[in-house]
């Protein structure tokens, strides 16, 4: 499967990826509408980190042996055996935060605006490509095929 990777030597922390992420997960998918009508109720699915001159945007790694999937008590967090994607079903989620406790990258976020649920990168399932990657002007975010993903689905 394709995964998103960051290159911290190229990231300028311009935050365009964050905006693209918010818009991509808004109802309208339009930047003005999203910010004017939905903004305080939108949670970006990525986190921009900065330390001195370094910065990067990080989002769900879709780990092969995902600790969040192991920790999820509702079955909301699952790994799709066909695509390798770690998916989250907000309908099932009860907001117990076991995934927040388990994710070593700290990229699962708490959406507490409505019903309390976890939220995270879904690789922009509605669009063809992850919108944060599309928005990055400096190729600090790239989307590429990961080798050696599990071949467990064979047989």
């Amino acid at each position: 499967m394709k995964k998103i990777y960051f290159k911290e030597e190229y990231c300028m922390a311009c935050r365009l990826c964050e905006i693209a992420c918010l818009v991509a997960h808004s109802k309208s998918k339009k930047i003005i509408k999203a910010y004017k009508e939905e903004f305080p109720n939108l949670t970006p699915r990525l986190i921009i980190e900065q330390k001195g001159p370094l910065s990067f945007a990080i989002q769900c790694r879709h780990c092969e042996d995902a600790p969040c999937v192991a920790a999820c008590v509702t079955g909301a967090m699952k790994r799709d055996m066909k695509t390798g994607e770690v998916t989250h079903n907000a309908e099932k989620c009860v907001g117990c935060w076991m995934c927040i406790m388990s994710c070593p990258f700290g990229v699962i976020l708490m959406d507490t605006k409505g019903k309390k649920v976890a939220t995270k990168c879904d690789l922009c399932e509605d669009a063809n490509t992850p919108q944060c990657v599309e928005a990055c002007p400096n190729e600090a975010l790239i989307c590429k095929e990961e080798k050696n993903i599990d071949k467990g689905k064979s047989k």
Binding site: I47, P67, C68, W97, C99, I100, M101, S102, C103, P104, F105, G106, I108, L109, M110
Partner: peptide
């Protein structure tokens, strides 16, 4: 408790 898992990772590794 946000990003608590980063600490989990630091402990585990």
């Amino acid at each position: 408790i946000s990003r608590a898992g980063i600490f989990t990772g630091l402990i585990k590794d």
